[in-house]
Design a protein around this nucleic acid. Structure first.
Length: 339
DNA sequence: AATCTGTCCAACCGCACCTGT
DNA sequence: GACAGGTGCGGTTGGACAGAT
């Protein structure tokens, strides 16, 4: 038995939103908020719409600070970089591009950026399109294949952005194991697929990431990354697999900070399941050695690992592995959750 | 001018996950 | 633990539009 539909589909309007509907929804949310219940919202707001439709309309179009229009080169690079690393986790990518929505980015990727990259990719790769398309029936390639293709395209990135010091996926000194033995690992700026560029209006201050430590075939945080937004559309969580990095103003652990972005000096804490602060600093081993349910492809882990290099002569971007996150003893043989 | 073709993007759909009971 | 309801996400669709023929 399938689950009940979220709304009475016979009595809800579908299709494009009228200005009147937009106005109603906007006014209602500005006045009362979402109330934490999208399903009930349309009725309260006097809209004959499905709650999901209202949510989508608000998040993608009506909420404040939505940015429409052309994507900048910097945004292109961020998207390419993140896509190469985490795949089509549009919500996470969107979280790094303030004002952009996941839907926006997804559409941009599918309609423009993908083609742009394909045009730059070597001919041999172009013969077999690496990207899934809504207009093609080819199954999507596994993520590691995508990664390798992006690497190939990376050389072209250098050409494409040669005036902007941007190289796609330059070879990086590999040392995934370094993640496990050092308390802190920095990611050299030149090992990233994009360079901060203040001329384009974005200034990256020292940026620190929690990076999922790599061990064997697994990322310590898990293989799946996702980000969830709160009801107001602001990303509040980044999660890897079943573990989460939750943004909380608790002054806890490391942080991602970006100048020029809305989300400055974000502090992250780790949580799991209940999304609360309890149970922090506990390692849990998963008997089967998998993170979540999905073991990572070795190639993928290797690729991710190669994005990490020790030492940095540039403060623009640093990747730090907090010693609290690394329990070297427990990385032996088994993957684990941190929560 | 009419038709065809491709592009873009807002919106929908189904699924997985989370939470509360 | 099972179930139901709500939420969020990624994939896909369909219509509007622009350019080509």
């Amino acid at each position: 038995m399938g689950r009940a539909p979220c709304c009475d589909k016979a009595n809800v309007k579908k299709g494009p939103w009228s200005p009147e509907e937009d106005s109603k929804l906007k006014q209602y949310i500005e006045k009362y908020g979402t109330g934490g219940n999208w399903i009930a919202l349309p009725q309260k707001a006097g809209l004959k719409r499905c709650g999901k439709s209202c949510r989508l309309r608000w998040l993608n179009y009506l909420r404040p600070n939505i940015k429409h229009g052309e994507f900048s080169d910097v945004e292109d690079r961020v998207i390419c970089s993140l896509f190469a690393n985490i795949g089509s986790r549009w919500s996470i990518i969107a979280a790094q591009l303030p004002g952009r929505t996941d839907n926006d980015i997804k559409n941009y990727w599918n309609t423009k950026l993908k083609k742009k990259i394909m045009a730059m990719a070597p001919q041999s790769q172009r013969k077999s399109p690496p990207f899934p398309s809504s207009h093609q029936t080819d199954p999507p390639l596994p993520s590691h294949s995508l990664l390798s293709i992006y690497k190939d395209a990376g050389a072209s990135f250098s050409y494409y952005s040669q005036n902007k010091s941007f190289t796609g996926f330059d070879p990086i000194s590999q040392t995934p194991s370094g993640l496990l033995s050092n308390n802190s690992v920095s990611l050299a700026t030149n090992s990233l697929p994009f360079q901060p560029n203040s001329q384009e209006g974005l200034l990256f201050s020292p940026m620190q990431y929690y990076h999922p430590a790599v061990k064997d075939n697994f990322l310590v945080f898990g293989s799946e990354a996702s980000c969830s937004s709160n009801s107001d559309g602001n990303c509040s969580q980044i999660s890897y697999g079943r573990s989460e990095i939750k943004q909380e103003d608790m002054g806890f652990h490391s942080l991602i900070s970006t100048n020029g972005y809305e989300n400055q000096n974000q502090n992250f804490m780790l949580s799991h399941g209940n999304r609360g602060a309890e149970n922090l600093n506990q390692w849990v081993e998963k008997p089967n050695g998998n993170i979540g349910e999905t073991p990572l492809d070795y190639d993928l882990v290797e690729d991710v690992g190669q994005l990490i290099s020790s030492g940095s002569d540039n403060n623009n971007i640093n990747l730090c592995i907090d010693s609290l996150l690394i329990d070297e003893n427990k990385t032996q043989e088994k993957a684990m959750y941190y929560y």
